[in-house]
Amino acid sequence: MRMNRKHLFPTHLLYADDILIFYKATMQNARAIRDIFLYYGVISGQDCSREKSQLFFAKGILLCYQRQISRALGFSVKKLPTVYLGVPLFAGSPRAVHLAAIKDKIINKFSRWKGMQLSMAGRLCLVKSIIQSSLVHTMMIYKWPGSLIKDLDKACRNFIWSGDINKKPSFMVSWDRVCGIKEERGLGVRSFDMINEAFLMKLAWNVIKGKKFGYDILHSRYLDEFGRSRETLLASLVWGWIKQLVLELIADSYCLLGSGSSVYFWDDDWLGYSIANKIGIPTFLPSRLKHTMIWALWSARNKCHFDGIYLLGRAVLAFIKSSFVEVDSSSTKMGHISNISSDYMVARRIGVTVRIRPPPNLDSVYWSPSAYSWLKANTDGSAVGAPGQINVGGVFCD
């Protein structure tokens, strides 16, 4: 994983015994990857299968470069669309032609079942346990075209009522009622449109959270620090159809503060923007210096509100600068900076004069064993409260 223009970008992905490698299409990189494979084979005794390995090039790569890289690695060149682990991979938005093969497999399953000889309860069980679960992987990734969704719902509806997907029976209950939950007198069947939207909503929520691998890549590329959509032209096969779902989830979500341990009053997005940015705190400041400046402004506000002391702009600025005083790192007093070079550089950048103290003198302490015929005693104690519980201990060495 590496950073590219402040965005996460994977260099490789591992799944079971498969590996996906992403690299710039140059002969230098191709030779380096070939040497890595050869070295790995010498060390481990395993060799990659060149017959099963394939190369996919982005648009704009000249055909002569593709042939050179293919010969250097010994891999064949393949183009999209293709299928990996049962999921079709293609460029652009999903169309009916990309997913039609999956729909046809589902339709063929119906034809192999003798639905006319099964009871309605048996047909319902097949639809819920086999048909709807077969499309989980692709519906978790792609927004299915409406025409395919309509064909699948029609096949399930006809199979449940008559046992034949090509026979349209007279329906006693509407399909929307059948797709309701059992508590609402439905049969617990889910329409494929509802399943697809539910999975994409979960995908959009994981992108907003950005805590799992893969989702953090989309989060860093398409969302800002507050979870809002970036104005970007970066292309993505997934982001195009979950963008609207992300915006809907953000608009309908709220935050539970809980203990407040992960809440930052000045930096969090409370009003569509952070309060620190609203009052003009420089964004280049580290968080500790930013909080120091905010503390100084807050103190100036309290002087005005409670003590009746009105500070003009220059006085407030002088008050802020006076708060940046160099102290020991062990100090817990607010309004100070730490003894590190980055804080000094930022302080000078905003016009603060920094006093750098000389380093303390260090005295060396050595331990030596006790002399012959002497007994050494090392003791220590601690107390909780005054008065309070006391514990003492000691070690005696000869």
Rank of each mutant, 00 (worst) to 15 (best):
I19Q: 06
M172V: 09
D18S: 01
V354K: 02
L285D: 07
F324C: 05
N196V: 00
N108F: 02
K154A: 06
N206R: 15
G393R: 00
S49N: 15
V346Y: 05
T26K: 11
S370C: 14
D398L: 13
Y254N: 15
K333Y: 00
V189P: 05
T11F: 04
N378D: 08
Y273P: 00
F213D: 10
L289Q: 10
K109F: 05
L14S: 08
I33V: 15
S261L: 14
R349W: 01
S299P: 01
R31Q: 13
W113K: 07
S341C: 00
Y273R: 14
W295F: 12
Y222L: 05
L89D: 00
S299R: 10
W239C: 12
A16N: 00
G388P: 05
D18N: 06
A58M: 09
V42Y: 10
K6C: 12
S382D: 02
H305T: 11
K167I: 11
D164Y: 09
M293Q: 02
P81K: 01
M345T: 15
L124I: 07
L237D: 09
Y65G: 00
C304L: 11
K52D: 01
F9I: 11
G146T: 12
E51G: 08
A383C: 14
Y273S: 14
D328M: 06
G313A: 04
S322N: 09
S262E: 14
M194V: 14
S229Y: 02
S229K: 11
K321D: 03
V83I: 09
D268R: 11
S134C: 07
D164W: 00
S134Q: 07
K303A: 02
L362P: 06
S133N: 07
R355P: 01
A58I: 04
V346N: 08
L297D: 01
I181L: 10
F57Q: 08
R67E: 14
A155S: 11
L311G: 00
